[in-house]
Simulated scan of single mutants.
Amino acid sequence: MSAPNNSHDPVEAHALNPDEVARMRAEAMEAVAAANSLDQLKEVRIAHAGDRSPLALANREIGGLPPAAKADAGKRVGGARREISEAFKTRQAELEEERDARVLVEEAVDVTLSFDPIPRGARHPLTTVAERMTDIFVGMGFEVAEGPEVEAEWYNFDALNFLPDHPARSMQDTFFVEGPGGAHSGLVLRTHTSPVQVRALLDRDAPVYVVAPGKTFRTDELDATHSPVFHQLEGLVVDEGITLAHLRGAIQVFVERMFGEGLRTRMRPSYFPFTEPSAEVDMECFVCRGASVGDPDAPCRTCSSEGWIEIGGCGVMNPRVLTAAGVDTERYSGWAFGLGIERTLMFAHGVKDMHDMVEGDVRFTAAFGMEI
């Protein structure tokens, strides 16, 4: 049996030399301090605290020392390894804190940001413009009336003083509804909203103040300024002492509230079977206000440098229409007007082509947004 090694000098074990242990400790501490990421720190841990690290290998040599030298060498190497381990823990905590702070900034999610997997829609601008036009007249004391889009010829033509041979009753302007077996049904797709005038007078006792927005139909080809389906806003007033001056005043209020204060209006003689006298209503161009007339250097695209824009037709109610609706013409008089909703939209928002209104492109509708 061999005797224990009592003569081995620990100084001769180079790895256990105090200066060498201090060097390995200092090298490890510098590497820990220099680690800028958790991945780098992991590599430093393997290199300076792993099973094959210099201090780990030095620790193995302690077993070959004599008992008297083991305690001193173990204390020296163990102390260095503990300090390095504590340095690792401290540096790891610092790097984890830096990582967490960086993640909070780089991967932040704004939980207040609205998210809708379905694109937000918008109401069609014709609807919102029609409601705005209607609201103006409701503010003046009018009420809203409605009528069917498939209308009886009597309401659409006869009650409005359209004679049997009037051109508007021909197939060139009117969609007629075919009856069973191709027979004449007496129904049409209404060509204007004026039938609502007759229905309103039959349903109400005078005085009557109504507006009727609605869809109308004519056999027009679809182009930049025409459509077989379009919208009108009909207005009707029947009361005692009603004159053309009241009509002029109502139109003036509408124009100023819809297009801007101070715009002038004018009436030009015209003809409609259901009014007498009749007039076309023009308003002063709200873009150039007439300044472009006769000025070639400043043309206006909105009014074509004419200074005026046609917005609709109007007139004093023909007594024949009032009589057809059972109104006492000796006591009551009235007037009516018709305004184009598409025309108003085109003027108010610069829409140039009727196709944009009817083709259903969501990009056109969304540009006007949502109005509540």
Rank of each mutant, 00 (worst) to 15 (best):
Q92P: 00
T128Y: 03
P148N: 08
R91N: 01
D116N: 15
G141S: 07
E149Y: 07
S85V: 04
D135C: 02
F137I: 09
D110E: 11
E94S: 11
V129R: 09
R81A: 14
E131R: 14
R123I: 11
A130H: 04
R81D: 01
T127W: 07
D110G: 07
V111N: 07
P125V: 15
R82G: 10
S114Q: 13
R91S: 01
T112D: 13
V144L: 10
L113M: 14
V103R: 13
E94Y: 03
V77T: 05
S85D: 14
G139H: 08
A101E: 11
G121V: 04
P119Y: 06
V109R: 11
T90V: 12
E131C: 03
A108R: 09
A108W: 15
E106N: 09
R82K: 15
F142V: 05
E131D: 12
F137M: 07
V129P: 01
E94C: 02
T112Q: 12
G147V: 06
R120S: 14
G141H: 08
M133S: 08
V138W: 04
R82F: 10
D135H: 12
E83R: 10
V129Y: 02
V105P: 03
G141V: 10
G78K: 07
V138H: 09
A87G: 10
A145L: 03
D110F: 08
G139Y: 10
G79F: 01
A108G: 11
E86Q: 12
T134I: 02
S114L: 14
T128D: 12
E106W: 08
T90A: 13
V144I: 14
R99K: 15
D100K: 13
A108N: 09
V111Q: 11
A145E: 11
V129Q: 10
R132C: 02
P117K: 11
T134V: 07
L95D: 02
E97F: 01
I84Y: 03
T127R: 02
P148H: 10
A145P: 02
P148Y: 11
V77S: 02
G147C: 06
V144Q: 08
E98R: 15
T112M: 13
Q92F: 01
G141P: 06
P148M: 08
R123D: 05
G147K: 05
E149S: 12
